[in-house]
Design a protein around this nucleic acid. Sequence first.
DNA 1: CCTGATGCATGCAAGTTTGG
DNA 2: CCAAACTTGCATGCATCAGG
Length: 390
Amino acid sequence: MSKWEKVKLGSVGQFKSGGTPSRSKNEYFEGNIPWITTVALKKTYIDENDAMAFISAEAIENSATKIIAANSIMVGTRVGIGKVSINKVPMCTSQDIISIENIDEKQLDKQYLVHCIKSYNCFFDTQKRGATIQGISSDVLKSIDIPIPPLKIQREIANTLDTATSVLVMRKQQLADLDKLTQSIFYNMFGDPVINENRWDTGIIKDLAEKIQYGTSEKASVDKLTYPIVRMNNITYQGNMDFSDMKFIDLSESDKKKYLVYKGDLLFNRTNSKELVGKTAVYRQETPMAFAGYLIRLVPNEKANSEFISAYLNSSYGKKLLFKMAKNIVGMANINAQELSNIKIYIPPIALQNQFATIVTKIEEQKALVKQAIDETRYLFDSLMSEYFE
DNA sequence: CCTGATGCATGCAAGTTTGG
DNA sequence: CCAAACTTGCATGCATCAGG
């Protein structure tokens, strides 16, 4: 699309930076002017509902922040580099956002411009500077080229990319719905853990376990050694596993027995911040991996299926229970193996648990399909971006 | 071997200085 | 004088260690 005339972003409007009023003055944050940080820049259009705080006129007088007129382009330049939104109402921003006011709508469609700026994210990534917190300078932002096709074509491009984006959002929603489905099937099959209306036998987690053991405290390495090692960040709060960031470890013959986790085992995060202690997930991979010392591995006995225990601990009841149990020491919280073993649980017949596990497996298959669709949509989106802007 | 403590890295926000 | 750059300090999450 290089056939179109290009202008520098710096020339399309007036650039303004933001600021953060001092937090030590409470009265600065008792006003009615919306104020945002880059966290709010997560969708194309934002308004007062996305405000992180409401500040007073006095705060504007006494800090670097300033009012940005409605319908300006807001770009994240430090934390959250390259996030772009349009503000529907006048608002103020932190110093990590640069805003562009007074864009000529007869020349440039704003939604088009949002996508166009976003297409420079890889470039921004190469331009960021700073030791601990990286950011790009306003000069970098002003320097990027904006192709200017006729307005009609700009709108077409924006619409196509918006559609792709909304498909992506929809698919992500599907994924979230599938997660909820597991929980609601759990409730339907087994009933409320508090009431136990089905009068299942009750017991403690220990009754359902053949083995409960800690993982290795061996230092993990980024080099590709024999075994990938599951660490606490590989278990999500929702009760799934995420293997996108792995480290590796070697295991001696004797350690393999102790420190390998197999398909169908349950993993439990015993140490973390208070909110995250007790993250639980079923290990569903065919090939075994090692697991770290702040995780506990539970091998179910003939009375239980891990999928059932996991869904129990991941239910809102289970989450509350674990949160209450976690012992808070300086910064970190703990639930040790003993305490995990003694958690009360109802024990439905194993046949029913297995039936539940089968359904969970089906749902997981669906999730895998949706994830694949998400990857494909993302690929489509990226190729559209490069077609339009490169 | 089990467990809690501790140290380290990173993220985040605000204060302070610099330079056009 | 203002915006940008640099500096500092605190919070959180993560990883490892050492004593019982």
